[in-house]
Write a protein that binds this DNA or RNA. Structure first.
Length: 104
DNA sequence: GACCTGACTCAAC
DNA sequence: AGTTGAGCCAGGT
């Protein structure tokens, strides 16, 4: 299983998602939709969330990915953690929602 | 290979 | 403004 999976993952949607998310600059956030678009599938926002959820990799700043609404969907390590990290990076959070950001 | 799920989004009510 | 239904995508069962 490992080998086949690895081979398949080499150039998959998931791989692109990881790349894009990893490249998000500090103090900036992207929506699931944006990530999906960057990955080449504008309608795959939910898949993005699914991937990030399962991923659980420290190299990937999942906390910089939020919903297009401005509210942060979830975080495998705890929503509180996500808000905390975001705040530290300069993003303003209000009642679990991102405010004072570029989109709006 | 069909069916269900989920950290989603949009439009309608 | 909060809820509902339908659409979309990858993964897992």
């Amino acid at each position: 299983m490992r080998r086949t999976l690895l081979k398949k993952q080499r150039n998959s949607f998931q791989e692109k998602v990881y790349e894009k998310v990893k490249r998000i600059p500090k103090g900036e956030v992207l929506t699931y939709k944006e990530v999906a678009i960057l990955a080449g599938k504008p309608k795959a926002s939910i898949a993005v969330g699914n991937i990030l959820n399962k991923n659980r990799d420290y190299k990937i700043p999942c906390h910089r990915v939020i919903k297009s609404d401005g509210s942060m969907g979830g975080y495998n390590r705890g929503l509180r953690r996500k808000a905390y990290l975001l705040k530290k990076e300069g993003v303003v959070i209000k009642d679990g929602r991102v405010v004072l950001f570029k989109f709006g």
